[in-house]
Design a protein around this nucleic acid. Structure first.
Length: 583
RNA sequence: GCGCCCGUAGCUCAAUUGGAUAGAGCGUCUGACUACGGAUCAGGAGGUUGGGGGUUCGAGUCCUCCCGGGCGCGCCA
């Protein structure tokens, strides 16, 4: 049961009634009519903007429409009070029974509460991380990994058929450099003195095991052989081992993508040629000479003709090259083929999670998707801005080139998987964020993970105490049948109202592709619960367990169980395990 | 020089996608708490939403011009 949807239907019915009576024009566009909780709690439980939206098409004053509309709404049994306020808002206060029914529905649904059919089973592809297979994941990848994973969970909860995906960039010059790095480490494993790792190669220690593995597998067969004889083998083996590392890093974060697509695989299968022909067939490919970027002319700039895609036809600033001067495909061309591959697999909605350094890539990729699908596919790109790590009040610097970056694994070892996941989701993806390693493991209100987990632990604690009292665990289904009318304190009703907002929060966050909103929802819910808890400290009558009153206790337990379920439901979206108790 | 993102309380960030008096946490000031589990709760102070103009019933949100910060800018991926 979604209370906002239910009352939206009531509002639409009221409009229809007035239209039928000739008091409002018929056939007005009602798509934007909404029912929301008002920002200000004093304005009631629900609010609709209907009168203000209808004012223009009806050629009437918003307040006049509101006055007409409020009558049938006031007459509803579920409505305790209805009023017109401000420029034409209609505010509704609901009867307590509505909230009691709502709580019963939550208990029956369990953590499935908040599930929506908004997506209607439509396929969505979420691609994230897609780090080059040239080393372990670092902190910047963590944000993308968590954002993508939570977004995928969120969309699934909102009723989409989600496929999670990782694009392996195993075709460029960077993997040849990886192969050469592996060869050095291989020689090192055989006892050669290799000195400093040259500029342009990968100096990290993580290459040592790769060299050792190759030495163990092939002996010294490629020690002095020309590069052409070993490059391919070393490259493939190194990529394989790097991807094992990547998968293990992701697994440690609780991320497990369903599909891994190889760039090299697509190129070898001719996918790039195929999509190139499609674009060419649409007249979107030509040979031309690009202008140098103004004010930042590269030293070695010389104009030369290139094979270009008409990205400007689709909103990009300049046309983009498809081929390098040696005739091979650019990364961009390969990426078009990859997105075309997704499109052919049935995905008309795609979401890519990129790092901030790919900001300049967004327009051209969207242009390419629009072009290759002839407008049939939609691509949303979420850019994750940088994460500034802090520890002991000092910033922690990372530098992938130097090979001494802060790895994802370091971060997880330091604070734990659940903390990394939750904290990374407490900020909108396009804002830079600060991640204070000291703060996030503190058990204080300042730490949002703790604050939410503590609320859940408190709920579980009450339920454990109750189980002892009743001589066995009390099931949610059992509690749904309790007489909930005993829940009549304003702070109890306030708590149920918060829970009733969960389905709407899921839909809004899913629609906007913004999982971070769930973190704020959970924080607010936890806050309401902690507030009620403390009232029970002051006022014994508000405590949850009353040994001399089974009926009241069961109603209160239903409330507590409801909070625990909704928190668990939210944490499930984040891939965070709700804790039973805090040590 | 161009493009994208950001700019909101001293600090870190929200704001139901155009809604009502812009909200939280930290910090600061005042109170409550020998217990269903202590790390919590109640309240005060703190704002010209970087600045100017515009759109309309209504702007932190949309348009425009400045200012400041980040990222990027033809054969790197």
């Amino acid at each position: 049961m979604n209370i906002h949807q239910t009352f939206r239907q009531h509002v639409l019915a009221a409009i229809d009634g007035l239209a039928a009576a000739g008091r409002l024009p018929a056939d007005m566009d009602l798509a934007r009519v909404g029912v929301e909780p008002p920002r200000e709690a004093g304005h009631g439980d629900l609010s609709t903007n209907a009168a203000m939206l209808l004012a223009k098409p009806a050629k009437m004053k918003p307040r006049d429409i509101a006055e007409m509309l409020v009558e049938p709404l006031r007459a509803l049994d579920a409505v305790a009070d209805a009023s017109v306020a401000g420029p034409g808002f209609i505010n509704l206060t609901l009867a307590p029974g509505v909230w009691h029914e709502c709580l019963a529905a939550i208990l029956e649904a369990g953590t499935a509460y908040g599930n929506s059919d908004m997506g209607g089973g439509a396929p969505v592809n979420v691609e994230y991380v897609s780090a080059n297979p040239t080393g372990p994941l670092h902190v910047a990848h963590a944000r993308g990994a968590v954002t993508g994973d939570a977004l995928a969970n969120l969309l699934a909860k909102a009723g989409y058929a989600v496929t999670t995906e990782y694009y392996i960039n195993d075709a460029g010059a960077q993997v040849d450099a990886l192969a050469r790095s592996a060869h050095l480490r291989y020689r090192e494993a055989l006892g050669d003195e290799i000195g400093e790792i040259p500029e342009g190669l990968y100096p990290g220690d993580y290459m040592v095991p790769v060299g050792e593995a190759l030495a163990a597998e092939g002996g010294d067969a490629w020690r002095d052989a020309p590069e052409a004889e070993w490059l391919e083998r070393f490259r493939d083996r190194a990529i394989e081992m790097m991807m094992e590392t990547v998968r293990a890093d992701l697994a440690a974060l609780g991320v497990e993508q369903k599909v891994f697509t190889s760039e090299r695989g697509l190129v070898d299968a001719g996918a790039v040629d195929a999509v190139f022909e499609i674009l060419e067939g649409r007249g979107l490919i030509y040979t031309g000479v690009l202008e140098p970027p103004k004010g930042k002319k590269p030293d070695d700039w010389e104009p030369r003709p290139q094979t270009l895609f008409k990205a400007t036809d689709f909103g990009d600033d300049v046309d983009r090259p498809m081929k390098k001067s040696d005739g091979s495909w650019t990364y961009f061309a390969n990426d078009i083929a990859y997105h075309y591959d997704k499109y052919q697999r049935g995905f008309t909605t795609m979401i890519d999670i990129f790092g901030a350094d790919h900001g300049g890539y967004v327009k051209r990729m969207k242009a390419a998707v629009a072009a290759m699908s002839d407008g049939g596919a939609d691509l949303d790109i979420k850019l994750c801005q940088m994460v500034h790590l802090k520890k002991g009040g000092e910033p922690m610097r990372m530098s992938k080139r130097a090979g001494n970056f802060v790895t994802l694994r370091d971060l997880i070892d330091e604070v734990g998987k659940d903390v990394v996941r939750f904290i990374m989701l407490t900020r909108k993806n396009d804002s830079q964020m600060e991640f204070d390693l000291d703060k996030v493991v503190e058990q204080t209100r300042d730490n949002p993970v703790f604050y939410v987990q503590y609320a859940h632990a408190r709920c579980r604690s009450v339920l454990r105490a109750a189980a002892e009292l009743f001589g066995g665990p009390v099931s949610a289904a059992d509690l749904a049948g309790a007489d909930l009318a005993a829940l009549d304190d304003p702070s109890e009703l306030e708590l149920i109202k918060r829970m009733a907002e969960w389905p709407r929060a899921v839909e809004a966050a899913a629609e906007a592709h913004e999982p971070h909103r769930v973190a704020y929802y959970l924080h607010d819910l936890a806050e309401s619960f902690h507030a009620l808890w403390n009232k029970g400290k002051d006022d014994v009558r508000l405590r949850f367990i009353h040994e001399d009153d089974d009926g009241l206790t069961r109603a209160r337990l239903a409330l507590v169980q409801g909070v625990a379920l909704v928190i668990a439901s939210g944490l499930e979206v984040f891939g965070v395990t709700p804790v039973e108790e805090l040590r």
